[in-house]
Structure formats: structure tokens, C-alpha cells
Amino acid sequence: MTRFAGVYVAIVTPFTEEMEVDYGCLREHADWLIENGVHGLIPMGTVGEYATLDDAEREKVVETIIEAVAGRVPVVVGTGSPSTKKAVHWAEHAKKAGASGIMALPPINYNPTRHEIIEFYQTLSNVGLPIIAYNNPFDTKVDLKPDLLAELCKIENFVAIKEFSGDIRRIHEIYEKTDLEVLAGADDLALEGLLAGATGWIAGFTNSYPKESVDLFALATSGKVAEATELYRRLLPLFRYDSTPRLVQSIKYSLKLVGKPVGKARAPRLDLTEEEKSNIEQVSKLI
């Protein structure tokens, strides 16, 4: 069953010059993305800087987006947290607020055993929302490999995987061993992931180029490979920043370049260097 088909945006959290959450800008940004055809929004992912928000801010960001969306597209909420208890809290809050699902990193603050990973997702499943597991072995100590996913997919609400390992071969193996829905997780492997059978794409730079991203998805999934490849190659020099540690700053700077400023990233992320900004400006001109 396909639940999360299409382009889902890992939406940024805008900040004012005083580095407070800009909820008005957040509403406007959500509207703009939907107007440009995106299929869903995901607050509180890596791009949303969830780890820098206090609990009250995090709750209000989720509630603001769900209110602004008003049912037009699904909202899937990130639950990344240092403890199972806290992850469950964010899943329960998402359910209460009206989210369509959750995107759940595995335990993030140490190297858990296989049994602990399974128990973690089982506990989240008990909340009762569909789960998109987020496989990001670069930022966590866990790699959700196909053999492990074959066990996890037995959990009732464990329905999809955001695959960010960088190994495109895994998509085929996941489909061989599980009944999970696979979502492309890296912008610079989006086309490859879609052509390998991913039914959706959880995207970062779609924040600044929503129409182009939606067009890419439509071309790729309708068999227009040559046209998709031509568009993808224009986007790819920018998309490559999605797989770097500076992705949040790069996406926010890209938004400034397209006339949709959302402020800077919160510390510990520091502003881009002048050289980095110049490089992003140059590759943006290719689009």
C-alpha cells in the first residue's frame, strides 16, 4: 500500500533576526510550497533544526504547520529524540495535533542493539500513527539495513523507510525482503531512487525549488526519463549540498536567493563562508 507517494518537503524552521521562531513566515512558506504542488510536509526533521528548539517551540511549529495546511496535504512529523519516552511524547503530540504520520529516527544517542531498535519502533507503533523510519547512518550510530527492515516491517504501523544511506542498490533489496514503501532520502540521489522504484521523495532543496522538484518527480514516475534527466542535471549541482553537513545553512541561503528568506540557522550551526555562498550562487544560476 502506498501512503506517502510524491514529494514531501522536510520543511525549514524560519527564524527572525533575533533567532526566534518566525511562525508567520512558517505559515507563508507552507502555503507557498503547497501552491507549488508539493504532496506533503515534514516538520521537525534535520532540515527543521528540531534539536535546537525547546519543547514549546517544537510543539508550536508542528501545530502551526498543521493549522496552516488545513488538510490540503498530509503532514508527517519528525520525532527525533534522545530517549524513547521523548520520541513517544512527540508521536503522541503529532497524533493529537492531527498529523498523518511520523518520521522516526532510531535511537540517536548511542549504539543500540538490534533488540533495542526493534523495541523502540514497537513502542512508537503503539501510538497508532503510520511510521516512516528515517535511515541516516551518517548522523546516528544505526544503519537500518534490509535484513533489519525485514524484521521491523512486521511491526503494525512500521510502513515506510526514508533511505539515506547513499547505496541505491538497497532499494531493490528492501523491496525483495519487505513490503515497505521506500522514499528517496537524498536530493542528489532522487532521480536514481525514483527510477529504482521509490514511490516518494523526502526532499530538502524542494524548500527553495518546489515546482522544479514536483516536475522532476512527475517526469521520473511517468517514464519520461530523458526529460527528467535533463532537469535533474540542472538541479544536481545544488542538490549535492543536501548530502553535506552544511545542508541546513545551504538550503536557507538558497531560499534567500529565490526571494523567500527564512533567516539563518541556529547555533551550533554557523553561517556559510563567503566562498560557500558564492558557490551556491553559481550553481543556483544553472537552474
Rank of each mutant, 00 (worst) to 15 (best):
G78C: 01
T123I: 08
E28N: 11
E18A: 04
P112G: 12
R233P: 03
T244F: 12
I171F: 04
R234F: 13
A186D: 12
A87Q: 07
V88H: 02
S213P: 03
L189Y: 13
V21W: 04
Y121R: 09
G193W: 06
R58A: 10
A186L: 15
R246P: 02
L191I: 06
K224S: 06
R246T: 14
P107D: 13
I132H: 00
V262P: 02
L286A: 14
A99V: 05
A70D: 10
P261I: 01
C153T: 09
V258D: 08
A265Y: 01
K285A: 15
I287N: 13
A196W: 03
K264T: 07
K256C: 06
A203W: 05
T16F: 00
A190V: 06
A265P: 07
N207I: 05
I118K: 10
P245R: 13
D139A: 08
Y253H: 07
A184Q: 03
G40Y: 04
N136K: 12
E275W: 14
I102S: 01
W32C: 10
F205I: 11
G71S: 05
R170Q: 02
Y121P: 00
D271A: 15
Y232F: 12
A150L: 01
A196K: 11
K85G: 06
T273L: 15
P261C: 05
T244H: 13
S254Q: 14
K145C: 04
L247H: 08
S208C: 14
A267V: 04
A184I: 06
F205D: 02
G24V: 10
I202H: 10
L148K: 05
N109V: 15
I174H: 03
A68P: 06
I117N: 08
T123H: 07
T16G: 02
I251T: 03
Y121H: 05
I34F: 03
T46F: 10
T221C: 14
Y253Q: 02
E212R: 11
F164E: 14
K60Y: 04
A5R: 13
K277Y: 10
E116K: 10
Y110R: 13
R170C: 00
P137V: 01
K96C: 06
V61W: 00
N109Y: 15
R27Q: 15
F15Q: 02
A70N: 08
H115C: 15
R169Y: 08
K86W: 12
V258T: 10
K162W: 02
A5M: 12
L257Q: 12
G48A: 11
N279S: 14
I34G: 02
I131S: 03
I65D: 10
A56Y: 14
V47P: 04
Q249S: 11
L216Y: 02
N157S: 04
L180R: 01
N136L: 09
V127E: 06
T2I: 14
D54Y: 11
C25S: 15
L191R: 04
W90A: 01
E119M: 10
V75K: 01
W32V: 11
F4R: 01
F4Q: 00
